[in-house]
């Protein structure tokens, strides 16, 4: 594997958990807080956190347009707040990257008291792992992906069919937090996407 370099947007939220997951996989990772930190980055993770805070800081430090430009051609994965930030529609006025043709509903399950853990089927993970067991997903004041349009496709749903993961070409969105569990299959799936992008 070419030595890849993954950026983790480190404005606020669970960026150190993502850095730790990447480090366990032996992948080089760097924090992205200012536009010039995106140089030499092959793929970017936008962590969980508060999407309003992350969006505001991205605007204030001149990152919004840079991140949009990066995501037009290079792989980006957003978890929870990151998924909201990637979407083109969060049904609310707040800064978004508008890169993915998905509509999200913030806090779709309610307040913190409704946060939950559950096992979900995530068939695409079979591309990076022989482990066929469901993925144990943690949802915290989580959003839902209400609909996917155009080139975006559904990767995982809850048993009742509601969408919790989607992909559009080199872009990946998960409503839950793989960075909070030891299971590294979604991280490996994203690295697989980065690898494919580097080959292309």
């Amino acid at each position: 594997m070419k030595k890849m370099n993954i950026g983790v947007l480190a404005l606020q939220g669970s960026f150190s958990e993502h850095m730790a997951a990447l480090s366990r996989l032996g992948v080089r990772a760097q924090k992205v807080r200012l536009p010039h930190h995106l140089a030499n980055v092959d793929g970017l993770i936008i962590p969980g956190g508060e999407s309003t805070t992350i969006g505001k800081l991205a605007v204030d430090f001149g990152l919004l347009d840079e991140l949009k430009a990066f995501g037009r051609s290079q792989p980006v994965w957003g978890t929870c707040a990151g998924a909201i930030f990637l979407s083109k529609d969060a049904q609310r006025q707040q800064p978004l990257l508008s890169l993915m043709d998905i509509t999200v509903e913030r806090n779709a399950f309610g307040r913190q008291i409704a946060s939950f853990e559950t096992d979900i089927d995530f068939p695409a993970l079979s591309r990076v792992s022989a482990n066929q067991t469901p993925f144990h997903a943690i949802f915290i004041r989580a959003p839902l992906i209400e609909s996917v349009e155009k080139g975006a496709e559904v990767l995982a749903t809850l048993p009742d069919g509601r969408i919790v993961a989607a992909q559009q070409d080199h872009l990946l969105a998960t409503a839950f937090h793989p960075e909070l569990t030891e299971d590294d299959r979604v991280h490996r799936y994203f690295l697989f996407m980065v690898e494919k992008a580097l080959e292309a």
């Binding site: 939220g13 969980g48 956190g49 913190q112 008291i113 409704a114 946060s115 853990e117 943690i138 004041r141």
Partner: peptide, 22 residues
């Protein structure tokens, strides 16, 4: 598995999502 609401992981997890914040 059934989904489990308000586990310690979700409680601690919300604080993890607040990190680096005010």
């Amino acid at each position: 598995m059934e989904s489990q609401v308000s586990t310690f992981a979700t409680k601690k997890g919300l604080a993890q999502m607040l990190k680096g914040g005010v």
